[in-house]
Structures are given as C-alpha cells and as structure tokens.
Nucleic acid binder design. Structure first.
Lengths: 204, 204
DNA sequence: CTGTTGAGCATACGCCGTACGCTTACGTGT
DNA sequence: ACACGTAAGCGTACGGCGTATGCTCAACAG
C-alpha cells in the first residue's frame, strides 16, 4: 500500500563495494554509500539496521561470487580441495579493500556455508572422517583466511621482504637469508605451496 | 634542557592495552587512552605521530611477551615448532581485543622477527631448505594468524557451531553432521591438530 | 636569576554513526 | 475521481572521533 522501495539490498551492496574498490575500506561510510546511491544518509536505514549489517551485505556479495559446485570428480581429491581454495581466494582478492570485512563477517554469509559443504564432501570422498574432517576443514579455513590477509598486507615478493633482507645478519642470520630467497617466490607458489602442506598432512 | 617527559612509550602501550582489555578494541581512542593516563588527548601526540603508531606500540608489547628462545633441542623438531606456535598463540590470546591489531601491525613488530628467526632455525635443523623453508614459514604464519582469529570469532565448541548443526539437512547434510561432531572438539585439539597437518606435510 | 626549549593543554574543525520526527509519494478502497 | 493509510526517504541534531594549530609554563643550563 505505501510507497515502494526504490532500491534492492543488492544495489546497496554494489554501491558499498564500489566505494571500497575506489577509496578503500577507510573511505566506506554511511554517508559515502548514500552519496553513491544519490540518497540521503538516513535513507539507508530503511534497508539496514546499522553499518555492520551493510558490511554483511558486502561480504555476502563478495563470497556469493564463489563457485561452490563440486569440481569434476575425475581428479584426485586433494586437487579438488585446491580448486575450492583457489576459487575462494580469487573471489576475495578481487576486492582487496574488503578483506577485513570478509574475515569478520564470513560466519554469517550463506555463501561461506555452501563452500564448506562442498569442501566437506570432497574430504569425505578422500576418506577423511569425523574429528579429522572437522579439524581439516577448520585448518583449511584458518590457512586460507590467514594466507589471503598476509598476501594482502605484503606479498612475499614485496617491499617488506626487502626490508627484512637488510636486517643485521648477526641477529637475524636465517631471516635475512630467507628473505632473499623469498623475493623470488610468487603469490601462487606461496599460496598453493602452503596449502599442499596441509593436504599432504591429511593423506595417510 | 627543557622539561623532561613524564611518560615512557611502554606506559603508553600499557595504558592502551588496559583500555582494550577493559572496553574492547571499540573502546580504544586517543581520548580514552589519554584519560587512562590522566593526560589531555593532545598530550599523546608528543609521544606518537598518530593513532596507528600507538597501535604499533600495543602490538610490540603483546608480541614482546612471546618467549623467542629456541626450545630444548632434545625434542623432535616438529614438536619444537609446535612449542613456538603455542607460545605465540598464548601471548596473543591473553589480549583477545587486540587480535585485529596484531594481524595488521605484526610486520613492524621486532618481536615478530625474533619469533620467525627461531622458527626458521628449527626448520633448518629439520632439513627444510631454501624455497621450502620460505613457504613453510609463511604457511605457519598464515595458519597461526588465521586460527587465532577463527578461535576468537567463534570457537568450534561455541554458539556458531550449534547454529550450523541446525541447518536444513537437505541442503547442508555434511555441514550439519560435522557441526555436531565439532561441538566436542576443544580449542587446543583444534589448534594443534591443524598445526600438525602442516608439520606432517613438511616431513619427507 | 634569567633565557631557552619543548611538554602538555585548550580550542576548534571536519568527519563519523545514528536517534528522532517530519514530509510526501504511492497503492488501494470507495 | 478522490481521499486515506502507510512507510520511504529526508533534515536536523548530538555525541564521539582523529588531529591541526598555537598557547602556557615547568624545568634545567648558564
């Protein structure tokens, strides 16, 4: 009966993502998102209860882009887990500014549950059972979450590594040497290399 | 010649940490820290350039509590890595409110470098070389960082797991079943269980 | 005792999230 | 065709944030 809404929640999420992609997470505010939608700041509160809920919409949108359909079953199960981890990483890295939000709000995003369900299916087919499967899923979550953040805060081939390489060799001999090696390790080699450690550890 | 400073950087860090421990990270502001020190807000700027630098002091303090001396060499090297990871986790978890800060600022904390140096030494003694050592250290960082955050955002034995356990079984059969198993997995079993996956994957 | 230096403070500005209450466009029932 | 009820969207305001700017005055060197 009353006036119909002029926006969808998806449009809100898209506007917020546009702000984040353009000005970074620090540029995100109710006011900037409202401006992006040619709306008044208080108008947003007809759609979300508070800023946190808006952030949740953004995360839903980012993680919703992850393809959760099980990869073809004709490849080894470890490789299928790698595929799933890679898909998640790709989707998240497409919006680097939103990474802290995805960490905080992933719990409440339905897309995250679908990803987990698929990964659990693959683990089950790989013969990982019960408690081991719980621990494995949780470890994969922890690793992927941490690796993406580390990659975003400073890639192994970035400036931070160069700084470490110049550390005093008497106090940090291994670190300095390792940093020089690290400069040559690309992001993919780093991410999937670490992931394979977990997957090898899962085999029995 | 002029008036001497009345505080040390350590006192700043302690005051900020006290605020965080009492009121959470959201309660941290230049004003609340100043109040904690019975100072005016602008007085803090004689010690730090901005809020970010103050956060760095907090992280230095938190990670400075980590014992970085190499564990006794008479235990298997994997076990020594577990010890180091456990020490880091213990120190960080002592101040849960500061966890997001430790993630953001760990790069610039000297204590983090000492931890890495020790872990690299253990890995070297375990026969992990060159690129494999780089990848291993980075994976350990990623895992520990991610696991601590996950644990803080919601332990496996917490409410979130119960919610997941009640998910519709037709759409999330494995997830719902797994969640029921997960309720019985304690934080230590979860943390070290995942860690051991990486360490097993490192063996050859 | 005096001069110099910087420690600490008071004020102010432009942001932020959001509580509150109004106006007004709209779909409906007559 | 028209009046009505509803909620969409807006204007204003408040308390809090980080911090730029410029002052006062405590403490020591000579």
């Amino acid at each position: 009966m009353p006036r119909p809404r002029s926006l969808t929640l998806e449009q809100l999420a898209l506007a917020a993502l546009a702000v984040i992609d353009r000005d970074g997470l620090a540029g995100l505010s109710m006011r900037t998102v409202a401006k992006e939608l040619a709306m008044s700041p208080m108008g947003l509160y007809r759609y979300v209860a508070d800023r946190e809920e808006l952030e949740g919409l953004v995360v839903d949108r980012v993680l919703g882009a992850v393809d959760a359909t099980p990869p073809p079953a004709d490849t080894p199960w470890q490789e299928r887990v790698e595929t799933m981890a890679g898909r998640l990483r790709d989707a998240v890295i497409r919006h680097p500014g939103a990474i802290p939000l995805t960490v905080i709000h992933r719990h409440h995003a339905a897309a995250g549950l679908r990803w987990s369900e698929t990964v659990l299916g693959i683990l089950a087919e790989g013969g990982v059972d019960d408690v081991r499967r719980v621990v494995a899923l949780r470890a994969l979550h922890a690793y992927v979450t941490g690796a993406i953040q580390l990659e975003h805060l400073g890639a192994l081939s970035g400036d931070g590594t160069a700084v470490i390489a110049n550390l005093p060799k008497d106090r940090f001999p291994l670190l300095a040497e390792t940093a020089r090696t690290a400069g040559a390790v690309g992001p993919d080699e780093e991410f999937f290399g670490g992931l394979r450690l977990i997957l090898r550890g899962l085999a029995d």
